[in-house]
């Protein structure tokens, strides 16, 4: 099937198998390997991207479903050489260790702050509760997102 997906502002047209998952489309067709894959059951969230501004697990979206839609991946967070506040926050507060969950966490964090610029700890925890991190115990992820919220004010 021929599809056109706008990724990080740029349209891409490709012929894909109908069963191709969005995560594999991004990684294998577009070489955007910042989006990771970690489970078979939509539980881990390392594949999280934004589809039309809303976080989705790209392992649970077929590439053809993204036809005509806009996708933002971690590669699209930095604008004109300027890091997004959430990216800065993760560096400032040691919000990542192995970095495997990080791209997905960043995209959810950005979505949260767009809707709620001043989330409290509970709201942050709830927002990232569909995503696993095996390294940080979440503490510094929460702090990183708080840092970004404060930086954004």
């Amino acid at each position: 099937m021929r599809i056109t997906v706008t990724v990080n502002g740029q349209p891409y047209t490709r012929d894909v198998e109908p069963r191709l998952l969005l995560v594999h489309f991004l990684r294998d067709e577009l070489d955007l390997t910042g989006t990771h894959w970690g489970c078979d059951t939509s539980n881990c969230g390392v594949c999280t991207v934004q589809l039309d501004g809303v976080p989705v697990k790209s392992c649970t979206v077929l590439a053809v479903m993204a036809d005509g839609h806009e996708v933002t991946t971690v590669e699209g967070l930095e604008r004109d050489g300027e890091l997004d506040a959430v990216q800065k926050g993760f560096v400032e507060c040691h919000g990542l260790q192995c970095g495997f969950c990080t791209p997905g966490m960043l995209l959810t964090a950005r979505w949260l702050l767009d809707r709620n610029p001043d989330p409290d700890e509970g709201q942050i925890r709830e927002a990232i509760s569909g995503q696993l991190c095996r390294c940080t115990g979440y503490e510094n992820i929460v702090r990183s997102i708080r840092w970004a919220a404060e930086a954004g004010r």
Binding site: G34, V74, F90, V91
Partner: peptide, 22 residues
């Protein structure tokens, strides 16, 4: 001290085994 490795990870530029293509 901020981590040196973060610069690549926060940009999705880590290089994990599955990211290597030949």
């Amino acid at each position: 001290m901020h981590r040196k490795e973060d610069a690549r990870f926060i940009r999705g530029r880590g290089n994990y085994t599955d990211d290597v293509r030949l």
